[in-house]
């Protein structure tokens, strides 16, 4: 049973993070496509902010559910990695939640030292030691599939980012609203010093 290395697990994590950022950027690009005015954009961004606030919760649910159901997150499955418990079985839901909440939190302390622990001989992170789990290499030689996934996700991220820039920069409604807002703010500031002048003339 070969254990997953630090670099394989890092790439798996990068794939998962790229997936999350792709979802966020695509959502933002879709908002841009609807050509919103300032108030519509504010509403959409506030809903997105509510989602972003719960991003850790969404990530915990994603990690825990996929790991207990399929043995790993998308990133790990792409790299042919599987998370197993002490008995060599897939994790139970509670153990999976524990690994991905308390475990990840502890591993993240002291400058992510718990993750760098994988570089040791036993290839176990602090969250593995805490939950009594091990990440094994179930399917070796997945370089091609991994490359395809990484390139696809990077492309989606870049395309979504470009989409956001293009749609927002060509949105005339939004530009007018912002210009109007800037004008109203600057006119308030200009009005202020007129009062003492009136007093002086009096």
């Amino acid at each position: 049973m070969t254990k997953g290395t630090f670099w394989e697990r890092l790439i798996a994590r990068i794939i998962d993070d790229l997936l999350f950022s792709a979802v966020f950027l695509v959502a933002l690009a879709f908002i841009g496509l609807t050509r919103p005015n300032l108030s519509q954009l504010t509403s959409s961004l506030l809903i997105l902010a509510a989602l972003m606030l719960n991003e850790p919760l969404i990530k915990i649910a994603y990690n825990s559910w996929l790991t207990s159901k399929y043995g790993g997150t998308l990133g790990k499955l792409v790299l042919g990695l599987e998370v197993l418990d002490e008995n060599g079985k897939k994790l139970k839901k509670t153990l999976s939640i524990f690994r991905h909440t308390a475990g990840y939190l502890v591993s993240g302390t002291l400058f992510f030292l718990g993750y760098f622990w994988i570089l040791r001989k036993d290839k176990l992170a602090w969250h593995d030691l805490m939950a009594g789990t091990v990440v094994i290499k179930k399917k070796p030689h997945r370089a091609f599939v991994t490359a395809v996934f990484v390139i696809t996700l990077v492309t989606i991220n870049i395309a979504a980012l470009a989409g956001i820039i293009l749609t927002f920069s060509s949105n005339q409604n939004l530009r007018n609203d912002v210009e109007g807002l800037v004008k109203s703010i600057s006119s308030v500031e200009i009005d202020k010093p007129t009062k003492p002048t009136t007093l002086e003339t009096v």
Binding site: A50, N54, L57, L105
Partner: peptide
């Protein structure tokens, strides 16, 4: 309301996780 609910869920989850930890 959605933003408030999001904040509330985040706080509750934070408390639960800190208790478990």
């Amino acid at each position: 309301l959605i933003l408030g609910l999001g904040l509330l869920i985040a706080i509750v989850m934070g408390v639960i996780i800190s208790l478990l930890l």
